[in-house]
Design a protein around this nucleic acid. Structure first.
Lengths: 219, 219
DNA sequence: TCTCCACTAGACAGACCTGTCTGTTTTGCG
DNA sequence: CGCAAAACAGACAGGTCTGTCTAGTGGAGA
């Protein structure tokens, strides 16, 4: 049925899509290859869920921002809950790998711990910083659900990163120090989210240094 | 029209209400005076909003738990948002006054700071502990709203409590120490909410002691 | 005893939200 | 070119949510 074209189809369809793929003069950087719906959905979900909360944002707003049909969402993720799961999974992997990269950029374990916190503090400067995605998502539903479990897994992995560095640094009680660092880590993210005050990263770094120094001094 | 009673009204009305105000044998403690709807609504809101989130819980569930008509909610609070505001206000006053009481139970400022954290740690042991109500409510809506402002006010007041104690304790930089204590405070609440691990209050207390000791040692 | 008035019970409107379904268009590939 | 699979647009069903409204009830005080 490609013969019977609607009357003004060309104009009507070229307007919303910013495709204009092949004009006479080729665009120098042709990076306008539309990424697949699944990726665009995940990106839209990341932006909207992170900024406004998982519950507040409806699927209609997600598909609108992604520029995708609703059926694509349900064929890719099964349900809104599936999209939320994928959103949190992507967040988990992305943040953990960035923190690991920060840690591995320093060979000295103490410097590595400070690099992890500096990596966190750099996030505070983003205009759209809104705290930890797990902390936010977890607040929107009662305890014991799948989001709760995902948040625990995320925290456990962060704590493992800290613990290994604390062992390598020779802390007297590496487990205790790892827990303490996680207190600062969560508290910093939460404080920066609500206060947006430059004192937060300053206090955070000073506290980390003090706690490490104290842990290294004890036998 | 009190003459024309519905057929089985007595049974129908006595069952849901646990009134049974005056039986033959008087109850020794007649504390069953039904508290006014506003109070019952606030109590139900506190339980439900705190446990499951402001957004998740609908007004129907609140009035059902309160045993109150919907019109009473809207005449007392104007809207659901009004009830949420009142819920957060009550939380603010209740928690702040408990922390102040803990601080004032000790004349030595360092002991007072530790008492504030012990007061927080006692909350962790409650079966229904679910973190800081402001942290939870704030996560359910975008930044810049009234809940955001209420959360900042709550945190500012807690920080004032800490700062005054840090000044009295003679900390080298009382502002910095107050910020550090708030990092531990928020991080402890968040960690205890998700992990429910007895290591949290242990690490919390140790971190507070270390940070205070370090702040007192510096000029 | 009578009269307000706060309260209760519940129906209802209107908005919104998730998830399904239909039909059309685009696109990738042989 | 031609076909099949994927993606699009959007209507729609069924449910839930907030907030309003009506009708009736009970108790306190004149």
């Amino acid at each position: 049925m490609r013969y019977a074209l609607p009357y003004e189809l060309p104009a009507g369809r070229l307007e919303p899509n910013r495709a204009m793929s092949h004009t006479a003069i080729a665009m120098p950087v042709e990076e306008e290859v539309r990424r697949p719906p699944r990726e665009r959905l995940l990106e839209a979900a990341r932006e909207l869920f992170y900024a406004e909360g998982v519950h507040t944002v409806g699927v209609d707003r997600v598909i609108e921002r992604a520029g995708v049909a609703k059926a694509s969402l349900y064929s890719s993720f099964g349900s809104k809950e599936g999209l939320v799961r994928a959103y949190l999974e992507e967040y988990h992997d992305r943040v953990i790998s960035r923190r690991r990269a920060a840690a591995e950029s320093e060979s000295d374990p103490v410097a590595a711990i400070l690099a992890v916190f500096d990596s966190l503090a750099r996030d505070y400067q983003r205009a759209d910083y809104n705290g930890c995605a797990f902390s936010g998502a977890r607040a929107e539903e009662p305890a014991g659900g799948p989001v709760d479990a995902a948040a625990r897994a995320y925290r456990a992995e962060m704590r493992d990163i800290f613990r290994e560095l604390c062992v390598r640094a020779g802390a007297g009680d590496p487990d205790l120090l790892a827990w303490q660092l996680q207190l600062i880590y969560s508290g910093g993210a939460e404080s920066a989210k609500i206060e947006r005050n430059p004192e937060v990263p300053v206090a955070q770094r000073a506290a980390v240094e003090t706690l490490i120094r104290s842990a290294l001094a004890s036998p």
